[in-house]
Design a protein around this nucleic acid. Sequence first.
DNA 1: CTGTTAGCGCGTTCAA
DNA 2: TTGAACGCGCTAACAG
Lengths: 330, 330
Amino acid sequence: MSITLRDVARVAGVSEITVSRVLRDIGPMRQKTRDKVLDAVQRTGYVQNRLAGTLASASSNLVGVLLPSLSNNVFPEIMAGISAALAQSGFQPVVGVTDYDLTTEEALVRSMLAWKPAAMILTGLDHTRETVRMVERAGIRVVEIMDIDGRPIDVAIGFSHHASGVATARHLLARGYSQFGFVGHDLDRDRRAAARLKGLVDGLAMAGMPPPKTHLHDGPSSVSGGREGLRQLLADNSGLDVVVFANDDLAVGGVYHCMEAGIELRTQLGIFGFNGLDMAQALPQPLSTIRSNRAHIGQSAVEALLMSSAPDIGGRIVDTGFEIVAGETA
Amino acid sequence: MSITLRDVARVAGVSEITVSRVLRDIGPMRQKTRDKVLDAVQRTGYVQNRLAGTLASASSNLVGVLLPSLSNNVFPEIMAGISAALAQSGFQPVVGVTDYDLTTEEALVRSMLAWKPAAMILTGLDHTRETVRMVERAGIRVVEIMDIDGRPIDVAIGFSHHASGVATARHLLARGYSQFGFVGHDLDRDRRAAARLKGLVDGLAMAGMPPPKTHLHDGPSSVSGGREGLRQLLADNSGLDVVVFANDDLAVGGVYHCMEAGIELRTQLGIFGFNGLDMAQALPQPLSTIRSNRAHIGQSAVEALLMSSAPDIGGRIVDTGFEIVAGETA
DNA sequence: CTGTTAGCGCGTTCAA
DNA sequence: TTGAACGCGCTAACAG
């Protein structure tokens, strides 16, 4: 049926192993032999079978990548970084979307490990016990991205969401805001957004301030969700002078609501986001927000994987940090 | 080293093939045997090896997916649809990003075929001759998404970008606009955006109108790019009364520019996008644009793959259509 | 209902 | 510098 090494070997008049060696560029090789083989590969249209190769050599070029979602803009960006970095190193990503569900993650990990990947990239530090057990037994490198508040399995690359919440509180307090609101979405599932809110609450508490008035929007994070969320938050609570959003998408929706309702940004109501997306910085008044180095997270994750093939016993943490973008909305 | 079927079989006191059958739920099986096996699987912590399974059975659950980019918002959405649909059917996506480059695509196809995927999903109908040859020889289903203006290898699912450009021209002419501008980005690489522009030009020509004044923005498609692009287009051309953008991201940037420059949308300058993204519909004045059924494209692509395992000789086209969203900006 | 036999296509190990 | 033999872990095909 399909063309194998055997066919190429026959055409080239050499043995299978010689073809294999030429293709992998291994060992000393007479130039003439190499040419014969390469010519035969061309003529036969041979496509290597990595299934067999990986099975025989026990080393694949697949990397499992698990992301919670693709509808939050941050993850496609991270995926782009991972994909570019992997491609450069000859690896191929097998992708799974967990939908922020740890049980789904466990199932995906199980089926990815069946492909004997060279490494796995997971999102966050929360996993089921079984997930952790499986990846540990697999003996491969595991990078957990986005979060560093916890104990990593192997390497964690990201930043502290709690700290970013605290920094948000400090920044806004310093700018004179005192009546805080918060608009988010499903915080049970998005643990990192929940950590940011907790940081905000803790930061306010340190200054003797009460927690923000909170509105949680149903449905996925989106611009329209943020717009509607702010409308409801303001309808239920009067006197707020600043609203923190769980992310930039929602915050842009908040800005739209203000535009439409004639609420003056910053003076009448401060709006603060999270992520530092381009779409929010391009607004007539750039969004005040926190930028994470997410462009680097994907690439750093891959670099960490390639550094050594032995898992880091005890875990290692790489803090990629974050920075406040003053902007003009808060 | 790792735990194999042999180990499980030994623990369960049955043969390897029996374990294999229990795990795949094949054939009639005494309940007691099944229980023994499942118990042994638990106790040993067995993780199946699909490499070996696929090699032996010549049928994998991998599907190669090639996308031109992840920074254009449309593709993460499509990827989400594909990922969800594949997951439901027990398939796993192996993802590659071509960066709109056909040679990169060829290399990615070659290395994906090495994993003997059950099918491939490619973007667009333009491929190198070698890419086409390889996937045809592989004898697997191939779905080309996004575009239907051309000859598909197997199945094409999408819509006519040229027709959408013509429809845009007709719609805007009917609304009384007469001085057209266009803001896009690298049209050499994004053939579909180029086809939309050509459709716009052709639509205008049918009405005896000249082609639009065009500004092509350097760099990737983005909100900030659209904002800057419109600024420059207006600086170079006076008297335009409507500007069509290559996509919604750019168009939102155009809206931002108008907000800032005090240009009244629709009356003073019409803005028209393409895609129908949520972020643009949530604007205080919803963007006038064209919505493609891209949410369905990913899912339809997977459905097409699963319908039958034999490639459609001669090719088949599924038109998912598009619709004009009147909006309030043009 | 369960087991035996014989590969899948390649890479490792040894030998020449 | 090249080759032969063997096995990676699993499943298809046939037996029983």
